[in-house]
Design a protein around this nucleic acid. Structure first.
Length: 436
RNA sequence: GGAGACGUGGCUGAGUGGUUGAAGGCACCAGUUUCGAAAACUGGCAUCGGGGCAACUCGAUCGUGAGUUCAAAUCUCACCGUCUCCGCCA
């Protein structure tokens, strides 16, 4: 949510920002409503003030005839207040509906574009592996090795589910452990920050296992409930499944105030993510690329506003470090206005090379949301001078397990159908060198 | 799931219908004192919104939402949450 004062003072910027994101909003209508809201609010407040004043007189006055007269008068004023409050309530409801539809404004360095075709590759890393044979896709290799079974899962649970088995499971836990080792090691983080030339305090991440259920109201505050059809809903319990650990990590400090010296606060949350993939009919149906359920380690950082850009750069640097450690080729992409998320001011994705598909595919995302989510969540910071303002929030993937497993399977595949295990993972897999 | 207790400012804790936005304490900030610090003393110290250049002022907020009343932290109802005991369970 943007600040209404900011919207009033910068309506051209807000309107232009929404247009770049291809979201229709009517700022003039909002401002007309806001004028009405302020007028009505003022009237209600003046009447309430009168009631308060007279009520105090009643309490202190000894003259009982006068008291009765004043009480009668206040009864009438009270009815007046009730009617005005009803009117105000309706105005505020309309006002909120429009406010919730106004997206965050894209940063100045966000490329403008209609959809993902407008995304820009910023840089790439790594040599694509050369094969003496035609590289296969992950599901073929996985099926042959008996480590991915989508057929049984299809019968048991439906499409877009899979059984992962054996060494692939061990590898998943190895990846998680490897990433947690990075995120909880201050030396490593410092090194990453220095190499990426970001000037922030590279403090450790606190590992968290968050709930996978969230109240729809809170999801709304995270500004991640724009497309209800994307979520698994449990109306009997007024709950929904999270689509990312971000949703229950970012809301951890709802209605709370940080002290300036506490920031940045960094979390590394591990959870399963649940997505209905409602808009992806027939897309990526093979294997485990696009699943209804996948596991992910996610970073969430609360920072001072002036640091949030650098914080995002730091998070991207961590993502790159993870992929470099695994020796997986990737490209870093500035996501354009037409493709970026509703609450984002700047979104950067990383796409990892998938030789079987002969394509880069999205494995990481990092969202800088500024004060957009924190305004809805009411998450603030008390500065050292006592002033209180909204914190800035950044979230980013550390590792999305399913897609990273695909990248490893495809990049490390061998002519005999086996998969070589990346060196850094071997210590987590009993020293094993191949899955075969 | 059953029974009971409770939810007040950053924390603690008073407050059961009328200048209570809320005593006291801790923490914090500024000053006095000190070479400096501690201690002591003095003062300040909730958030949000409206109006005002400002001093200031009006309103809202005592878990959330409704209600009763001229007047609600205080009374009523619903919901949410926490704690204790029992049950169940990994």
């Amino acid at each position: 949510m943007l600040d209404i004062k900011f919207i009033r003072e910068n309506k051209d910027i807000v309107q232009a920002g929404a247009k770049k994101k291809h979201i229709d909003i009517d700022i003039e209508q909002l401002i007309t409503l806001d004028d009405a809201r302020l007028k009505e609010l003022k009237e209600v407040e003046e009447l309430r003030s009168e009631v308060n004043r007279v009520s105090n007189d009643i309490a202190r006055n000894q003259d009982s005839a006068l008291k009765i007269q004043l009480i009668e008068e206040m009864r009438i004023v009270k009815d007046d207040i009730k009617a005005k409050e009803e009117k105000l309530k309706n105005i505020i409801e309309e006002w909120q509906k429009i406010m919730l539809k106004i997206p965050n404004i894209p940063s100045v360095d966000t490329p403008v574009g209609p959809d993902e075709s407008g995304n820009q590759v910023i840089r790439n890393w790594g040599e694509k592996p050369q094969f003496s044979f035609t590289p296969k896709e992950h599901y073929e290799i996985g099926k042959a090795l008996g480590i991915i079974d989508t057929e049984t899962a299809g019968e048991v649970s439906g499409s877009r589910y899979a059984y992962l088995k054996g060494d692939l499971v061990i590898m998943q836990f190895g990846l998680i452990q490897m990433c947690l080792d990075i995120l909880t090691n201050e030396e490593t983080l410092k090194k990453i920050a220095e190499e990426a030339k970001v000037s922030i305090n590279p403090s450790k991440f606190l590992p968290v296992i968050p709930p996978v259920f969230i109240r729809p109201l809170v999801q709304m505050k995270m500004a991640r409930y724009m497309t209800p059809e994307e979520h698994y809903l449990f109306p009997n319990d007024d709950l929904m499944l999270i689509g990312s650990a971000e949703h229950t990590l970012g809301s951890m400090h709802m209605n709370k105030i940080f002290e300036e010296k506490e920031l940045p606060v960094r979390y590394a949350g591990y959870s399963t993510a649940f997505r209905r993939e409602a808009g992806a009919a027939g897309k990526d149906t093979n294997g485990i690329l696009r699943q209804h359920q996948f596991d992910k380690l996610e970073m969430e950082v609360f920072s001072l506003p002036e640091n949030s850009m650098q914080e995002q750069n730091f998070l991207v640097a961590i993502q790159e470090y993870v992929l470099q450690t695994l020796k997986l080729p990737y490209q870093v992409v500035a996501v354009c206005t037409g493709d970026m998320g509703f609450p984002d001011s700047r979104q950067i994705d990383i796409e990892t090379w998938m030789p079987g598909q002969n394509k880069y595919r999205e494995t990481h995302s990092s969202d800088s949301t500024g004060g957009f989510q924190s305004r809805r969540l009411n998450t603030r910071v008390r500065r050292s001078d006592g002033k209180i303002e909204h914190v800035h929030m950044n979230d980013a993937t550390v590792i999305a397990l399913g897609r990273t497993l695909i990248a490893i399977i495809e990049n490390y595949q061998q002519a005999d159908g086996s998969v070589k295990i990346p060196e850094v993972l071997r210590k987590y897999m009993g020293g094993k060198e191949f899955i075969k």
